[in-house]
Amino acid sequence: MSTAPASTESLRLGFLTALHLENRGYVAGLLVTNKYGRPLEFQCTAPVRPNRTQELLYGPTLVPFLLGELLSKTLLDRIGIKPHFVLTDLTEILDSRPHVALPVACVLKGTTTDAVRIGKLNFGLHAEFNEDSKAFERLAKELAADADLLEPLDRVREALDETMKAAA
């Protein structure tokens, strides 16, 4: 579990998402913001394209591995300003939870009984880390009730797009 922020002013959120690019593979980005959504640091990976052998051998576990373990962990290791929480909109990224020491939550489109409400959205947690729910409940109290936690993920996607265009 991450160290809790010293004060609510220093609370930092990590918004992590990924894109699949035709013929180029997967690329992920992590934006760390303060509690108001103001950007503090952004990191993104180079695109990673699995080869045929990897596709065959990993089978359906390939994408969860790539996004959850390889790319997410890399980003969370490299980022200089460490977030206190990680939020994503990709369930595959939830699989990063066993590999990082940070609570990770994923936006749920529906409502489930074990979902955590943050702002206006419901978030799901990794099945083996239900204890994260307490941390997220604390987070929910810190943020505005109408906080839009999807919007920063849109920014990450746009930044990834821009970066890939620049690299093309």
């Binding site: 934006l31 959504g37 950007p39 952004f42 919007e151 920014r155 746009e158 620049a166």
Partner: peptide, 22 residues
């Protein structure tokens, strides 16, 4: 430069900036 472009792209919407009690 990419850094300049990302700087703008990663800023929150103005409404959010102004809504954040800041």
């Amino acid at each position: 430069s990419l850094a300049d472009r990302l700087f703008y792209l990663l800023q929150p919407p103005l409404q959010t900036m102004l809504a954040g009690q800041e």
